[in-house]
Amino acid sequence: MKLTLQQVLAIVQKDLMVEMRARDLLVLMLTFAVLSLVIFYLALDLWGPVVQRVGPGLLWMTITFAAMLGMGRTFVREYERGTLAGLLLAPIDRGALFISKLLANLIFLFIMEAVTLPMFALLFDLPVLNPAVMLATLLGTLGLAILGTMFSAMAAHSRAREALLPLLLLPTTVPIIIGAVQATSNAISGVADGPPWIGLLIAFDVIFLTLSYLLFEHAIEG
């Protein structure tokens, strides 16, 4: 148990150190996120009450696509340079390896969101910097990262590389997208009743965290 914890910490720390030196992942995700917010605004000519209605959806599309871009890279990077084999050679429980990669992905995604959310609030003039939106973002991002980590490990081994990731991730994370958008929407407009979106997000996270933890060895091993 102590060794497992040490291994998880070592991998997360290593990923952060590599990213601190290479910086390509965060730069890629952040540029993409900001760019798509701008493009959405221009393409949809958003103003007035329309923003209130479609804003949460745009925010989550931006987060989802930026997240896919980033998570796809993390495994392809390890796979193409052969360091993934180096990790697999180590006597580390495959579930623990999943947790390590999930944590590293989550840290990158939260950093991306820490920039995207204020940007969004500024550009779209919507009050998304409130605790309810934060909670929805936290839970929604966790759900995206769980299946994203799982599927990007599989995508890295495929001929299509990262291109396979959206095909696997988008249909399966429909509940996350809907749940997070609705929860964000309710928080912005101050709606208190309605379906328990936060509960749906939690249920999704718990179910797929368990499932991915168990299945990850089949996704990662040769």
Binding site: L147, M150, M154, H157, S158, L168, T172, V174, P175, I178, G179, Q182, G194, P195, W197, L200, A203, F204, I207, F208, L211, S212, L215, H218, A219, G222
Partner: peptide, 30 residues
């Protein structure tokens, strides 16, 4: 490996179906 990956999606996909259905139903009630 392809067979193994398909099995993973066969499991995750099926577990996902009722959750998707639930979320879409709630979404429609709005």
């Amino acid at each position: 490996r392809g067979r193994r990956y398909a099995a993973i999606v066969g499991i995750i996909g099926f577990i996902d179906v009722p959750i998707v259905h639930m979320s879409v139903r709630w979404w429609r009630t709005l």
